[in-house]
């Protein structure tokens, strides 16, 4: 503690109020708390008000005790209590049944409407599905038709010799340059032709 007191850069911080078991602080030992000064007329007036207030509260409490205290209320007739309860229950049941009836009509109407709307929805769905299937089918058929048309020019085992012959007879020459206006520029006078040896090898 002494080392703490001598350390000038050390400051003790009390974060809560002084605990009860600690003695009076040194600075507070000779402090005399100031007594409140209430003028005499004020104190008299307060006394009068308090007396009145206490009387009024006392009577109020007595009234409420007679009215609400369970010890006083316990002396009621149980048979009468039961009767009152049953009457209340009957009334409640009647009201409940009435509400249930009205609710039942509403509910049935609501359910019928819901069913109808669901059926409508299903019908629309079926219709849409049908339209979609048709579209799909027509699309497929178009593809098939196109394929069939193009298959006319296919090379099959029957006409393979003919087509080879045709290809050999009419060789295509791509060995040219293009001019700016789209004309072909061969750059030579003769068209390239296969010799006999090459024809045989191509046929094979």
């Amino acid at each position: 503690m002494s080392s703490l007191e001598t350390a000038t850069n050390y400051q003790t911080v009390r974060w809560m109020r002084k605990p009860l078991w600690m003695p009076t602080a040194k600075s507070k030992v000779f402090r005399i708390p100031v007594r409140p000064k209430i003028p005499e007329d004020e104190s008299k007036e307060l006394m009068r008000l308090h007396n009145n207030y206490r009387t009024q509260i006392k009577s109020l409490r007595r009234y409420l005790t007679y009215k609400h205290c369970t010890r006083f209320l316990a002396s009621e007739d149980p048979e009468e209590k039961r009767k009152a309860f049953e009457e209340d229950l009957k009334h409640c049941m009647e009201l409940n049944n009435k509400w249930n009836d009205t609710q039942k009509i509403l509910r049935e109407k609501y359910i019928a409407e819901q069913l109808e709307s669901e059926l409508d929805f299903a019908r629309k769905r079926i219709e849409m599905e049908m339209i979609r299937a048709e579209e799909k089918m027509s699309e497929i058929e178009g593809i098939v038709r196109k394929e069939k048309e193009s298959s006319r020019n296919f090379i099959t085992p029957e006409n393979i010799d003919e087509s080879i012959e045709h290809a050999v007879e009419n060789p295509t020459d791509y060995n040219f340059a293009l001019e700016l206006d789209g004309g072909k520029f061969l750059g030579r006078n003769e068209v390239y032709k296969l010799n006999e040896q090459e024809k045989i090898s191509a046929q094979q």
Binding site: L60, R61, L64, T65, Y66, K67, H68, C69, T70
Partner: peptide, 8 residues
């Protein structure tokens, strides 16, 4: 409040 004051 009435009930509880009535019951002390």
């Amino acid at each position: 409040i009435r009930h509880w004051i009535g019951n002390g």
